[in-house]
């Protein structure tokens, strides 16, 4: 035991002596200054997250309803607020998780935004951006559709203004919906994958609004679920006076059949998507 201790002491002393001699030698040779800590990596762990909304070509270029009405929008206002994007792992699954959204990072975009999805420049409409968003995959989103406090859509969450034409008949329409809704959905599904933010890079968080759910599509079979569930334009044209229909949601509740109004309520709930991924939604009041 004593031998082992002695050996350890010797090794320690030799090591210390070697260290001292080495240090002295380096100093005598004018050793470089001690290295400063390596600078942090040039790339930060954040990036630019751009929030956008898209009404797709149905809003910007018009659409043909399931009954053959050629519909063009002069304006298609929606008002959005309380917008947020989330990084979730395991990925948020709207069908399995419902409203329970557990996240690692959340980036919110403060403010209220009234945007015109019929504007050709709204491809998509840029709402705002967050410059220091944590890098990662933004695969869940939430927002509210609210009544505009001011502006062209004041008092309404959705305002559609446009013209419908069919067989020589023209109907100018203004549809005003004041229903406020909360939406929540998972990752963007589309022809490209969005929401992947690399450090120092840029990514898009897009909310998508499906206008064909309101009016259906002539290029789909009549028994396609998209058309059987759509309101179409015939029920609205039936309300026109001198070629004009200007109605609120309350007016439609009084005027439409119970079946059509229930259909319209359901359409409003399912208006918001993330690309082609459906959301859950519920009225705010």
């Amino acid at each position: 035991m004593i031998g082992i201790r002695t050996t350890r002491m010797v090794v320690l002393l030799v090591t210390l002596l070697a260290g001292i001699l080495t240090f002295a030698g380096c100093a005598a040779e004018g050793a470089p200054e001690p290295e400063t800590p390596a600078p942090a990596a040039e790339t930060s762990d954040t990036g630019l997250l751009v929030f956008a909304a898209d009404g797709e070509e149905h809003a910007r270029e018009g659409t043909v309803s399931k009954e053959g009405w050629n519909i063009t929008f002069e304006h298609a206002y929606v008002t959005l607020a309380d917008i947020a994007a989330y990084q979730t792992d395991p990925p948020y699954d709207v069908d399995a998780d419902g409203w329970d959204l557990a996240y690692d990072h959340m980036v919110s975009l403060p403010g209220e935004f009234t945007i015109d999805l019929a504007d050709p420049a709204s491809d998509p409409a840029i709402l705002g951006e967050v410059a220091d968003a944590p890098a990662g995959f933004y695969n869940a989103f939430s927002w509210h559709m609210v009544r505009a406090a001011s502006g062209p859509a004041e008092g309404n969450s959705i305002v559609f203004i446009g013209t419908a034409e069919k067989d020589g008949e023209t109907v100018d329409f203004t549809l005003r919906f004041d229903q406020e809704l909360a939406y929540q959905g998972g990752e963007y599904i589309g022809d490209v994958r969005k929401g992947i933010l690399d450090a120092g890079g840029e990514a898009e968080a897009e909310m998508t609004f499906h206008f064909d759910h309101f009016f259906g599509r002539a290029d789909k079979d009549a028994d396609d679920p998209l058309n059987t569930d759509a309101l179409g334009f015939d029920p609205l044209a039936a309300l026109a006076t001198d070629g004009v229909v200007d109605v609120s949601l309350g007016d439609l509740k009084e005027s439409l059949s119970a079946e059509d109004y229930a259909r319209l309520e359901d359409i409003l709930v399912h208006f918001g998507h993330i690309g082609e991924n459906h959301c859950i939604a519920e009225p705010l009041e």
Binding site: P91, G186, E187, I189, G190, H210, D212, H213, K220, L226, H273, G275, E276, N277, H278
Partner: peptide, 13 residues
């Protein structure tokens, strides 16, 4: 795996 068609889509992992 993403599957999508005419405004509807889903993903499975």
């Amino acid at each position: 795996v993403q599957v999508r068609q005419a405004g509807h889509g889903g993903i499975v992992r």
